[in-house]
């Protein structure tokens, strides 16, 4: 008798919204949470543990080595050079932002075939990274390794009477890195252009009108209207560029395989883990990358909280103004 009553009440409870909330939460979150734990948090925990160990390929009998792995990363020039290489990409992304901003502001002005230009400039962003890399292998060189110099770029240069250049030259890592940075800009710039177009178009047309009345030329217009309005986005992009520069992987991995002094931090990590099978050291590298990313993210959050607060204050001001206008009317 008693048991029956309890059962019924459980059943009843099960159909109340409280009960439903509980079982729906459990049911809906089960799979995503299991996946999150197994493929993100457990590996992250392992990563930190392994980073203090010397491990062989099979993880048999790992030895605790303290901070030795971290010391290797920052003292062994073979590893430390990858930080230097990421500077190329950092500088590259500054150039990328400037060019993207220029193209975006042109695309926002009165111009024919806007859609076409926008589409062409954006399309590389959607292309398969391996395809892009092979296309540029051909762009800089020709034929099977050892590569000859009759690539597309040299053919273009010859049309202008310029002597061919050895782009992929082991003796000139600076040039090779610059080439790779160029490929990276080529691939990713379209995205920035679209972002900047969105930002520029969200500027109030009243400002432009006022600007035209004052007889400003396009450069003044950019300097005093467009630039201040999109400054937050530019600074966000530059912060994200740090993240991007340290995590460069695909393009150099496919085009040069990290040879010719073009190895990046992530390429080195992957090589250390899967070619040299030094999982401990590789884990330490992954942890270093994680720390850099956390710092960058904190900086970004900190700066953007300020921005959004300013925005909120301004919109409140506008609202108050509108209210008072209404009141006056």
């Amino acid at each position: 008798m008693f048991e029956k009553k309890q059962k019924r009440s459980f059943k009843e409870w099960f159909h109340t919204y409280e009960g439903q909330k509980l079982y729906v939460s459990a049911l809906f979150l089960l799979v995503p949470l299991v996946l999150l734990l197994t493929f993100t948090f457990v590996p992250a925990f392992n990563m930190i543990t392994y980073s203090f160990q010397e491990r062989d390929q099979f993880g048999v009998d790992p030895q605790f080595v303290g901070f030795d792995n971290y010391k290797t990363i920052f003292t062994n020039p073979d590893y430390f050079i990858t930080f230097k290489n990421s500077l190329y990409y950092l500088v590259g992304s500054v150039v990328q932002q400037i060019v993207a901003l220029l193209l975006a502001s042109i695309l926002c002005s009165e111009i024919r075939a806007k859609g076409f230009f926008k589409g062409v400039l954006f399309f590389p962003y959607l292309m398969n990274g391996v395809a892009v890399s092979i296309i540029f292998l051909r762009f800089f060189t020709k034929g099977n390794p050892p590569l000859t110099q009759e690539g597309t770029l040299n053919s273009v240069l010859q049309m202008f009477g310029i002597d061919p250049v050895r782009w992929m030259d082991a003796a000139n890592p600076v040039l090779v890195n610059c080439c790779l940075v160029f490929v990276s800009i080529w691939r990713y710039i379209g995205f920035d252009i679209i972002m900047y177009i969105g930002a520029i178009q969200s500027i109030s047309p009243d400002l432009y009108e006022a600007c035209d009345l004052d007889g400003a030329n396009p450069f003044q217009r950019f300097r005093y209207i467009v630039f201040p309005s999109i400054k937050p986005i530019i600074s966000l992009q530059l912060i994200l560029a740090v993240k991007g520069a340290i995590s460069v992987f695909e393009i150099p991995y496919i085009i040069t395989g990290g040879n010719y002094g073009t190895s990046t931090f992530v390429i080195k990590t992957i090589e250390t883990a899967f070619k040299k099978k030094q999982v401990g050291l590789a884990s330490a590298m992954a942890v270093v990358l994680l720390i850099i990313i956390i710092i960058v993210t904190l900086v970004q959050k900190f700066m953007f909280r300020d921005e959004s607060e300013v925005e909120a204050r301004e919109s409140a001001k506008k609202k108050r103004l509108k209210m008072s206008e209404k009141g006056a009317a």
Partner: peptide, 14 residues
Amino acid sequence: LLPNISMQVTVFRI
């Protein structure tokens, strides 16, 4: 926050 590619070092084992 976790960087996807370099996480593969330990994801691979799992």
